[in-house]
């Protein structure tokens, strides 16, 4: 038996909006730790890792580890039927081939339940080793989204270079080229407006902008994004989910051949 009650139900809608462009079908894994998901895009170029910790739910009951295969477009359709202030409860019985989403209005005067069929999904689970990163950039998520959007109108790939000058995002396309340089800036009114660049070693990597732009669908989840770079490793683009966990996107670099 599984019963997860999330008071801030809108969080779940934002999570779905963040990943459904990248991944179509995925297994949600439920354990005593929390509600999690790991999935790759169909080309196996990007990977998303989601964790919503058990402590973040008002009520969390998971009698045994359960993996529930869901079509994310269908799940998003169902969650769209909830009100923005609704409490969402996810329920499933052991061995059941369906999951129920229950929506309660804040004043408890409207209660609905939507039952969704589960599916069998063959998915590979990858081990993600702890790594030392050459550079870690912490910046406003809206700024990162704007840079990715702007550069995608010029080119298909972005070169992210970190040096002691700061972090440079560069692209090149048929109509021209663009460079955006950000310097560390901690003299801001609010901590979430700061740009902090931690560099152990200079690093420069090339990535497909299409994927980066897809990751920025997670922007409504957090004011801050953290980008971790190491040569010879996928970049990690992380959005923290307040008091609950995170969404981490991993993207394999492009390499010269």
């Amino acid at each position: 038996m599984l019963e997860l009650r999330l008071v801030q139900g809108s969080l779940l809608k934002k999570v779905l909006d963040a990943i459904k462009e990248l991944v179509k079908d995925a297994n949600f894994d439920c354990s005593t730790t929390g509600f999690s998901l790991q999935a790759m895009d169909s080309s196996h170029v990007a990977l998303v890792s989601l964790l919503l910790r058990a402590e973040g739910f008002e009520h969390y009951r998971c009698d045994r580890n359960l993996s529930m295969g869901m079509n994310l477009d269908n799940m998003a359709k169902m969650l769209k039927c909830s009100g923005n202030d609704d409490i969402i409860t996810i329920k499933a019985d052991d061995g059941s081939d369906s999951v129920t989403f229950m929506f309660e209005s804040p004043t408890q005067d409207k209660i609905s339940d939507f039952e969704m069929k589960l599916m069998d999904i063959d998915s590979e689970h990858l081990g993600i080793p702890e790594a030392e990163y050459h550079a870690i950039i912490r910046m406003p998520s809206a700024e990162f989204a704007k840079i990715c959007r702007d550069l995608a109108s010029i080119g298909d790939t972005v070169v992210i270079s970190v040096s002691k000058e700061g972090v440079k995002f560069s692209t090149r396309g048929d109509i021209g080229a663009a460079n955006v340089v950000l310097r560390q800036n901690t003299t801001v009114d609010k901590p979430e407006e700061a740009t902090i660049i931690e560099m152990n070693e200079p690093v420069s990597l090339t990535f497909a902008l299409r994927y980066m732009n897809s990751f920025t669908k997670a922007t409504p989840l957090s004011n801050i994004v953290t980008i971790s770079l190491s040569s010879e490793l996928p970049v990690v683009v992380e959005y923290k989910i307040a008091e609950m966990g995170y969404i981490r996107f991993y993207l394999a670099p492009k390499i010269e051949e």
Binding site: M40, V45, E124, L126, I128, T206, A208, A252, K254, E256
Partner: peptide, 14 residues
């Protein structure tokens, strides 16, 4: 020419 690498060439199956 830049070639796109895959995630599976960095992380292995568990």
């Amino acid at each position: 020419v830049n070639a796109q690498r895959q995630i599976t060439s960095f992380f292995s199956k568990t």
